[in-house]
Design a protein around this nucleic acid. Structure first.
Lengths: 214, 214
DNA sequence: TAGATTGTTAATCGATTAACAATC
DNA sequence: TAGATTGTTAATCGATTAACAATC
């Protein structure tokens, strides 16, 4: 694998989970096959784009027929690495951190939330949906001992970079960042930013832009 | 306003909050001016792109000098519509909905979380960080009476489209969607999707892709 | 003035869309 | 077979980057 395959663009990767999720829903409904045309209508994309995206990874369809829903769903799951289980820890057991711990859907999708870390003595020692909250100082050792795959940053903005550094230092290669900060990491570490307040700002922009159209 | 101005691309809009946030931080530190070059290094973009982006809205800089941090911050705030206050309601008072109600930062940025709505009798009547939880049936009237600007969908996947319809019907033109569903709305309504599990899938993909490089 | 840095045009790059032959 | 729909190449479109004259 890897090597000679030409690089898949990030734009393509970001559409794959949508395909996967939609196909999973179709599969549940018992739909057996689907054309790129129908898929495009349901997802608000073009059929051409969907076929291009899928053909980055192989020809999963059949001329005149379309795609087998269960097969395509399975292939997308494999491409996304969803057959694996991932170990996750959360830095910051505040409201967002705890909400993530409670979200049961993640476990079903292969993501195990092992523990959270905080500096607030009130929170330390608590158990949230089977995950224990430890003192932040114990994070490094925990990551190493448990071979954690993904680190979530749900700590305050000021602590974000430091937290990321500690995660990277202990072998984490994927960071899910909820702090409104621009985190710098070595390039082999993938950072996925969830910038909640940025996305509210975008809503604000479009509300204003619409208002100005009169 | 509006009219003749050529349309600003969504890619540009999505960078504006990052500029704004970074400039706000610089301003707090007392930094008075900054060049596109330095800004680009700190944000991981190119200087050229930053100048292009800003010049969609006007020439805020000065040759040989750069940009005045407070002035550019102010201009970006105005462009994003952040001088206004926005009224928000949340459909779904589960863990995510409540975490959003608790996030104090939003209020500071002009976003007032007025109320939440749910069908769970246990939650109805509770007060979360000054916001009351009402029965879902009361949402429509509340939106109309209070001229709500932004509707947050933090309800289960199955209820998402129906919730969105109710919001749109009652005049909401901006939706912040946390449900893993593709919501369809009239085009004048802006939907901002926060697809948490999609972004976990992207992390999964990159973890696997890295693994395969050996 | 000399040096720095913008605003802006032109060049490049990449992503999306269109088109259609292949084929089920 | 006829109709449908893919896989794939080519055309288009848009976004990013480079370059540099203008100018503080």
């Amino acid at each position: 694998m890897g090597m000679a395959e030409r690089k898949i663009s990030d734009a393509v990767i970001r559409r794959l989970p949508r395909y996967h999720r939609h196909l999973a829903a179709l599969e549940k409904e018992g739909v057996e096959r689907i054309s790129s045309r129908r898929l495009s209508a349901e997802l608000g994309l073009t059929a051409s784009q969907i076929r291009q995206d899928l053909n980055c990874f192989g020809g999963f369809g059949q001329q005149g027929y379309g795609y087998s829903v269960p097969e395509l769903r399975r292939e997308l799951g494999r491409i996304l690495g969803l057959q694996e289980r991932y170990k996750i820890i959360i830095a910051g057991a505040g409201h967002i951190g705890r909400a993530l711990l409670y979200y049961a859907g993640f476990k079903d999708e292969g993501f195990d939330m092992l523990a959270a870390f905080d500096v607030d003595e009130e929170l330390i020692g608590q158990t949230v949906n089977d995950a224990r909250v430890y003192h932040m100082d114990e994070m490094a050792v925990f990551i190493k001992n448990n071979q954690v795959d993904i680190g979530v940053i749900a700590s305050p903005r000021q602590a974000a970079q430091q937290t990321a550094d500690a995660m990277v230092e202990n072998g984490i290669r994927a960071i899910w960042n909820f702090a409104p900060a621009d985190i710098h990491t070595p390039e082999q570490v993938h950072v996925e930013n969830v910038r909640l307040s940025d996305s509210l700002c975008v809503l604000s922009y479009y509300l204003q832009a619409n208002r100005d159209e009169y």
